[in-house]
Design a protein around this nucleic acid. Structure first.
Length: 617
RNA sequence: CGGGGUGUAGCUUAGUCUGGUAGAGCGCCUGGUUUGGGACCAGGAGGUCGUAGGUUCGAAUCCUAUCGCCCCGACCA
């Protein structure tokens, strides 16, 4: 068989640009499909549910090792590198400094930190009973899910003066979380790639500046990689801290609900979202009379009390929930028809909390679930309670009904201020679509989103625990004010696919495409095709594109299908049919139509197309 | 952790209810015909039916245990 002029691997050496003296870059490294490795699949793997997960596998970007564990294949790795590099550039521009920390942490760091109790569940750790395997004592290690417990002691050690602040350190690397249920490919993985950054400031004012500098860097980052991500107010969760934004990619398959109103600009994670349901100047309803007890045999639910013969509407009931926070029971009071937003209990300051069991409830309140209440004087052992926390919305309810803390009895004419033993009001209910938004009073809407980034203003939670203090110009010692910031790099790659694909495959945004130009050589054994491919590839590469040359000896259908699947933005087709007319074809992944370009102008025109695409990206 | 499903060739799967020679498509290998949107013909290789025990003359199939994976829920920096 004639190998004349091909495969393209036999390129004469002079067309390879010299490496010496060039900066390290992905650019200028054209690949030949026949020499590269892009194992595409016609069929979707049976364990993939969502489009982006199927495409990740079908396009040969990743392969699964086990649940939530993935190999990044050569093509996928190229995308990951590009996303990381853009992330790096934007963070550097914002003044952050890259470093690299171990991902294996001594467990002591975590035991000393503020969130060990809450975080240990999801952390991989060495077997503390590992002794007896040859060594009498095994040190214990955990795999880092993030690095506050490493960076804070480091900064404590290295930075002691206000002159060295502020500082913002970041790294891009592997993170480990033993997710209870990994799913959707890279969306929720056990091992994943994340950028994490940590800012240290002398005071609150500059810490806020650092925070918003990072917010801007994030916005620039997501814009550059070509993904729509919106910043929404978020719950601080286990991280703690004073405020927080999440960056969400809108997508049906997202894990989070974003509550928003387009006109007012309000946007928040449902866990954090609030509404203007309760007016600030709300006056209490006048009591209709003294509290009355009445028998409600067998009535254990809000719905049962709302039904005949009692007919007390849900919003006229007070719902009493019992939780155990750091070992002590506490109560949460909501309107009967409202749902608890459990994340909001995080603001109460407990390290860990969970719903109480029926056995735990009875000795404290004096009744079983279904007849519980918080009316003064009815609680069996009020001294045992860590507090009674009431959702503000219960103030909308006057002369309501609640459990009597006596099985089979309820109380009516219950009024919030007069009758309930409330420690503190707060926002604990889940908002509903249609309620007035807190910014402009317009109706709230909801959509699903994928969380791809998260920024927190942490305050001094970690610096105090680890003693990360500095001395100011008055010789006074203060804890540093911290912020922490994360971007899920691998998750972002999948979010891009989820947001940018069609029935044929992925449509990569220019800046993160594994290759920006693919040259489909339909007759790779023809010398003329091979020569032209070389010329065009060089021109495209010199214009700044990463070039893939499909030099495989395959039928055209297979080549076109593969190219669409892997989503390369610009496609140049060289075929004998076109060459007879003296033309090649140029087509974008996004558009169906193609333009014919005279062979003589090919290099120049392709280079122009590359420059144009790059300038638009 | 609770509920549901599933495990058969590299991939997608049929067969399991009702026990009796393990089948197909894709992919792969050989030869030929093809050649601008996942071709066709002929031939071929490839399977401890997740694993371990049990029932049976006989188990992919029935029973028990166990492991993996997927979905729903809980959970989720």
């Amino acid at each position: 068989m004639a190998d004349a002029g091909f495969p393209l691997r036999s390129f004469p050496p002079e067309i390879h640009l010299p490496r010496a003296g060039r900066a390290a870059s992905l650019a200028g490294s054209m690949k030949f499909w026949s020499q590269f490795f892009i194992p595409t699949l016609k069929e979707s793997p049976s364990d993939a549910e969502i489009a982006s997960h199927k495409l990740l596998v079908r396009a040969g970007l990743v392969r699964k090792l086990g649940g939530g564990l993935y190999t990044y294949m050569p093509l996928g790795l190229r995308v990951m590198k590009k996303i990381s590099q853009i992330c790096r550039e934007e963070l550097d521009a914002a003044g952050a400094i890259e470093l690299w920390m171990p991902h294996v942490h001594p467990v002591e760091n975590w035991e000393q930190g503020p969130r060990w109790a809450a975080a240990r569940e999801i952390m991989f750790r060495t077997d503390s009973a590992g002794a007896g395997k040859g060594r009498s004592k095994e040190p214990e290690f955990v795999l880092g899910p993030t690095h506050e417990e490493v960076i804070t002691p480091l900064v404590k050690q290295e930075i002691t003066s206000y002159r060295d602040l502020p500082k913002n350190f970041y790294q891009i690397g592997t993170k480990f979380r033993n997710e209870i249920r990994p799913r959707y490919g890279l969306m929720r993985a056990r091992e994943f790639v994340m950028m994490d950054a940590y800012s240290f400031d002398a005071d609150d004012e500059t810490a806020v500046k650092s925070y918003f500098a990072m917010k801007s860097a994030y916005e620039a980052f997501f814009k550059r990689i070509g993904v729509t991500a919106i910043a929404v107010e978020a719950d601080t969760g286990v991280m703690g801290g004073s405020f927080s934004h999440e960056f969400m990619v809108p997508a049906e398959i997202g894990d989070d609900d974003v509550i928003y109103n387009e006109e007012s600009g309000y946007a928040a994670n449902r866990e954090k979202a609030t509404s203007a349901l309760v007016p600030a100047d709300l006056a209490d309803v006048a009591p209709a009379g003294p509290v009355e007890e009445f028998a409600t045999p067998g009535v254990l639910t809000i719905a049962a009390l709302a039904a005949a013969p009692y007919s007390v509407p849900g919003e006229q009931q007070f719902k009493t929930l019992v939780f155990i926070g750091d070992g002590k029971p506490f109560l949460v009071i909501l309107r009967g028809n409202d749902e608890l937003e459990e994340a909001k209990l995080g603001s109460l300051g407990f390290t860990v909390f969970r719903p109480a069991t029926a056995e735990e409830i009875e000795p404290v309140l004096g009744a079983k679930p279904g007849s519980l209440g918080a009316v003064k004087g009815t609680i069996k052992n009020p001294a045992a309670l860590a507090g009674v926390f009431a959702d503000r919305a219960i103030r909308l309810t006057g002369n309501g009904t609640t459990g009597a803390n006596k099985d089979g009895f309820h109380l009516r004419n219950v009024n919030v201020t007069r009758d309930l033993a409330i420690t503190k009001f707060g926002d604990f209910r889940r908002v509903r679509v249609g309620e007035p938004d807190p910014k402009g009073g317009r109706p709230l809407q909801a959509k699903r989103g994928i969380e791809v980034g998260h920024i927190f203003k942490l305050g001094t939670k970690y610096s105090e625990k680890f003693g990360a203090v500095y001395t100011d110009d008055q010789k006074q010692s203060h804890p540093m004010v911290m912020g922490c910031y994360g971007i899920g790099v691998s998750r972002t790659m999948q979010a891009v696919i989820e947001q940018s694909h069609d029935a044929d495959g992925i449509i990569w945004p220019w800046n993160v495409a594994p290759f920006q130009v693919v040259i489909v050589v339909l007759d790779p054994l023809m010398q003329e095709s091979a020569d032209l491919a070389k010329t065009i590839a060089l021109a495209a590469e010199q214009a700044g594109a990463d070039v893939l040359i499909d030099d495989r000896v395959e039928r055209p259908g297979i080549k076109f299908k593969d190219v669409d699947l892997i989503g390369i933005p610009l496609r140049v087709t060289i075929g004998s049919k076109g060459l007879k007319e003296g033309v090649i074809e140029l087509k974008t992944r996004r558009q169906k139509d193609m333009v014919k370009i005279p062979v003589a102008e090919a290099g120049e025109r392709i280079a122009a197309a590359v420059r144009e695409a790059a300038s638009r990206a």
